[in-house]
Simulated assay, not measured.
Amino acid sequence: MRATFSLCSAARTPLIRFVGKRSVPKSVDHTPRVHPASPVGALPDSFAAYRAKAQQHGPLGRSSFTSGIGGQSGHALGPIRPQNGQFFDRAELPARFGRLTFSEAEMEAIETGGASQFA
């Protein structure tokens, strides 16, 4: 018996039944309006004016690219040196801030979850 075939070939009837005939409104007002929760209460003059003032993950205006990073090549920005008291790598820190070395007993305790200390 091929139950799957008979189920797939059956006409699909939706479970939701709508009352009445579909009707599309004759006139829909698509003019832009200010959102009721808008703090400003006014629409922007143009999209370009909005984009010049908008912030997303930083300024969206083109002025930020010409003056900051991205407006010049890396070579033109010059060498990068850390400020006084800042370090780029952990190896440059004084020895007291270096990595600690573990003894064999400590490594065994870590690998066994501490069970080796009580066995």
Rank of each mutant, 00 (worst) to 15 (best):
I110R: 12
F18H: 10
T112C: 03
F88K: 13
E104T: 08
R90V: 15
H75Y: 12
Q72R: 14
R2I: 03
P32S: 02
R96T: 12
Q86W: 10
A3M: 01
A3R: 09
G74V: 05
T31K: 13
C8E: 02
Q55F: 12
S9G: 07
P36S: 00
P44I: 02
A48M: 11
G85Q: 02
E108Q: 11
G61Y: 09
S63F: 03
F97S: 09
G61M: 12
G61V: 07
P82D: 02
E92F: 04
Q117M: 10
P36Y: 03
H75G: 14
T112Q: 06
E104M: 07
N84Y: 15
P59S: 10
M1L: 03
A54R: 05
R33Q: 05
F18W: 08
D45I: 03
A119M: 12
P59N: 02
R17E: 13
S67E: 13
K53L: 11
G98P: 14
A49I: 00
G85R: 07
S67L: 13
R62N: 10
S23Y: 09
P44C: 05
A42P: 04
A42K: 12
I69T: 14
P25S: 14
A76S: 13
R81W: 02
G58M: 04
G85W: 02
D89W: 07
Q117G: 08
F87V: 03
S38T: 08
H75A: 15
S63M: 09
L100F: 11
P25T: 11
P25F: 07
H35P: 09
F88A: 13
Q83Y: 12
F47W: 06
